[in-house]
């Protein structure tokens, strides 16, 4: 009995916790006059897509969305490639200065991105890359976390498996591709989720380097709507928020297990 009660309490709490998300969706579908109504209308008797129309027509939201998708995809793929090459070298190859280099990489995990935005901005202006997607894609490739995570993963793979591949005449790159990577799927997917999430939600750096409306990513573009609509129409803001959340929601529903495992894994390793 007590067990059931605690369970019911937990579900009720979770529903309450999720309610703001539901409220966002409901508000976005309401007529203006129903939005500003007390007591609040939880189940509107009539709904409209007007706010969605306004967002689509008067902002670059689809463009921002596309920019975010392209940037997140590029960052994630490049991080996976660059980091698995480096992690493989740190885990399996012997070369002069390896351990010193790895310590430097490890130490850099203590330096958060916020600390380097000012010199980075100067660097990207010198390179003439302000207002370009490259400016958002390149800096995350220097992140140390993925190298660390994948190295840990690679170290856990038994050496014998590679030895037979080497005897068969496989090169080092071949060993990485055909032996190590296929065995590291949990680590790779955890890193992919960690990287993609970070890139998708990145705000400060894109805010600084992307000034052109058509170049902006979703979080930065959305934020510009706040000034235009915050006082006049919450319906429009909520519609914009829903549009940018739906893909995340769909992905989460289908890949819930990976998301949660990914967080537990990347958290446990760090």
């Amino acid at each position: 009995m007590r067990k059931k009660l605690l369970g019911a309490f937990t579900v009720a709490f979770a529903v309450l916790w999720f309610l703001p998300v539901v409220w966002m969706l409901i508000t976005s579908l309401k007529y203006e006059t129903d939005i500003f109504q007390l007591p609040p209308i939880w189940i509107p008797s009539r709904i409209t897509l007007d706010h969605y129309k306004v967002v689509m027509e008067r902002s670059h939201i689809l463009r921002w969305f596309l920019n975010s998708v392209v940037i997140t995809t590029c960052v994630t793929f490049l991080v996976l490639i660059v980091d698995s090459l480096a992690a493989f070298a740190f885990a399996r190859l012997r070369f002069f200065g390896r351990d010193v280099l790895f310590s430097i990489v490890l130490a850099s995990m203590m330096v958060p991105g916020q600390v380097t935005i000012v010199p980075l901005f100067a660097l990207f202006s010198d390179l003439g890359l302000i207002n370009t997607a490259q400016a958002v894609i390149l800096p995350p490739l220097a992140g140390a976390f993925g190298v660390f995570l994948l190295r840990q993963f690679f170290l856990g793979i038994p050496l014998e498996l590679e030895e037979s591949a080497i005897i068969d005449g496989c090169s080092k790159l071949g060993v990485l591709r055909h032996v190590i990577l296929p065995l590291s799927k949990p680590g790779l997917s955890a890193l992919a989720i960690f990287t993609a999430l970070g890139s998708w939600n990145n705000y400060l750096w894109p805010l600084i380097v992307l000034q052109d409306q058509t170049k902006m990513t979703l979080p930065v573009g959305l934020a510009t709507l706040r000034g235009t609509y915050a006082t006049s129409s919450y319906g429009v803001l909520m519609a914009a928020a829903v549009i940018s959340s739906v893909p995340i929601f769909v992905m989460f529903v289908f890949m819930k297990k990976y998301f949660i495992q990914g967080i537990a894994l990347t958290g446990g390793m760090k």
């Binding site: 703001p20 998300v21 409220w23 966002m24 508000t27 998708w200 939600n201 705000y203 979703l218 979080p219 930065v220 959305l222 934020a223 706040r226 915050a230 919450y234 803001l237 909520m238 914009a240 928020a241 940018s244 959340s245 995340i248």
Partner: peptide, 12 residues
């Protein structure tokens, strides 16, 4: 959810 979405939800 992205930080802008969080901010919008709570502004409201």
């Amino acid at each position: 959810l992205s930080i802008s979405v969080i901010a919008f939800i709570w502004l409201w």
